[in-house]
């Protein structure tokens, strides 16, 4: 099990790393665009749309890694009102809900991924972007998030065990 989750974490990390490269590429693209335009050369015509699709990847690919490192912001005002033993039960329910949610959306996303592949659907901005390439990060993001949540569900990790010194309530 440990090995399995280590492998999942590795994939999650890789997807997050890919987004870092995408962000770096966006910086380069925008700078190049500005420089070219001000030298009265033709700017990169596909740049804006490519950046926009890069942002879609930046939204969904880091999702599993953020689950892993507890990087998704949360609050706990109802949870805090419960007695300690009930919180432990609630915690598991929350993880289970997240696993189910992620798998549920994965099913729909994978479905539209294959639909898009089959029909050759695309989105039209300054260039035609195949739809499967837009849905792919959604599939990956939710599926690996489901796996990362399993790690919490099976008790390898807790979302709420922040260092008491750092914990400020809510």
């Amino acid at each position: 099990m440990q090995v399995f989750f280590a492998a999942v974490a590795r994939v999650s990390w890789l997807m997050a790393a890919a987004v870092k490269l995408i962000l770096a590429a966006i910086v380069i693209e925008v700078v190049a665009d500005v420089v070219l335009r001000n030298l009265n050369l033709r700017p990169i015509s596909w740049g804006v749309s490519a950046t926009e699709y890069g942002l879609v990847y930046a939204a969904f690919l880091p999702m599993p890694w953020l689950v892993h490192i507890k990087g998704h912001v949360f609050v706990e005002f109802l949870r805090k009102a419960l007695p300690i033993p009930a919180r432990a039960v609630l915690e598991r329910i929350v993880y289970a809900a997240c696993v189910i949610l992620c798998l549920y959306i994965t099913v729909f996303a994978v479905n539209s991924f294959f639909d898009a592949l089959r029909t050759g659907a695309y989105e039209t901005r300054t260039f035609d972007m195949p739809k499967w390439a837009i849905v792919a990060p959604v599939c990956l993001g939710f599926f690996f998030s489901a796996l990362e949540w399993c790690r919490f569900l099976l008790g390898f990790e807790s979302l709420y065990d922040v260092d008491p010194l750092e914990q400020e309530g809510l």
Binding site: R37, N40, R42, P43, S45, V48, S49, T124, R125, T126
Partner: peptide, 17 residues
């Protein structure tokens, strides 16, 4: 807008979306 970008580029203008 993306709708007429190609055309304006073909005219030789610099285009910003």
């Amino acid at each position: 807008s993306p709708l007429y970008r190609t055309f304006l580029e073909n005219l030789g203008a610099t285009v910003i979306v």
